[in-house]
Design a protein around this nucleic acid. Sequence first.
DNA 1: TGCAGCATGTAACCTGTTACATGATTAG
DNA 2: CTAATCATGTAACAGGTTACATGCTGCA
Lengths: 191, 191
Amino acid sequence: MKTRNIHSDLALAILGLLSLRPASGYDLRKVFLTTAMKAFSASPGAIYPALRRLERDGLIEGAVERKHTLRPRMIFKLSGKGKAALVASLTKPVTREDVIRRLDGLLLRFSFMSGLLGEAETLVFLAVLAAETQGYLKVLEEEYRRSAPGMPFSGRAALEQGVETYRVTARWAGKTLKELKKDLSSKGASK
Amino acid sequence: MKTRNIHSDLALAILGLLSLRPASGYDLRKVFLTTAMKAFSASPGAIYPALRRLERDGLIEGAVERKHTLRPRMIFKLSGKGKAALVASLTKPVTREDVIRRLDGLLLRFSFMSGLLGEAETLVFLAVLAAETQGYLKVLEEEYRRSAPGMPFSGRAALEQGVETYRVTARWAGKTLKELKKDLSSKGASK
DNA sequence: TGCAGCATGTAACCTGTTACATGATTAG
DNA sequence: CTAATCATGTAACAGGTTACATGCTGCA
């Protein structure tokens, strides 16, 4: 069975949220408006077309609720195919490119892993993420060393922000990886 | 004179780079491939159409170099109109929305300010950026306090990454603001 | 001779933005 | 009664991605 791949972060976010509980387009909008997922588009012009595409591809299924009343809602839930596509998307290999240009997407994928992937797979993801982030940090630090002296104030400061951002992310990934490893080994011991 | 506004980060990055020195499409690609601006698309399918649009709108001007040889290059430089549009784009007010959804764009704008804006304007930009980042950090921290206990491991960890990222950015903005203020006052004193 | 790098481009496809539009329900 | 909120959508437009395509130049 060929699982269609998910193209955009918005589609991934929708599938992830629907993996937690069924929801209407409006429910999803509220999540995007009121939680830390504000980083995503909450505009109807993005959400409703995305839902239609996901339904067209068989990744989600909509059911009309309160059919008889005058204000029906479309409640969507993840299909088997949708769950497969979501899991496939979460387990895609992590590349340096992803770390540089799509870090948000990587964090989004990670945020949904607990309910959908085993701890071993989550661990692999985190390990690669930590390594690649650390690696890119080194590259950026080296560039800073070379270039900073000749750069104008604002350019240099902006580069500093980039370095510091990757520094905390690398630290965070390392810390989180350790936590997860501890979880795993304590479970292994109690077995 | 109505200065057309710049729509994408890529267009802004191109104009910013051309404000430093004229360059060909290929030169720009190399910058995107080899410097910290890797975060931008370096694909020809993005850069060349963007250059054509900027030229169409009169923001840049292309001149064919080495016309007589068999391998001509198009060297683009910023026009007066382009510089005006760039300055206008750099001085647009900073909103909370920008901090949440387009932080990269804000940093990009900041990175080009030194040569194009006065220190006073740069200072205003940084002050608002610092305030809004700090403000959103508070919101995220509050959300973490409320939600973290009930969240699954990976969701909570992802939220932590967000909090820590905004924390360093807020700190960075505050620190950079202070540096700039010191610069300004020492110049004022020596006058 | 052949390969890496220079230099530019096109086309199909997908997605997001902005702005507009509609109508129902509920709280004050 | 009326404003806010619920709930869903459409259309024009712009932009990026991927993949493909072309031909030159310098070097080994």
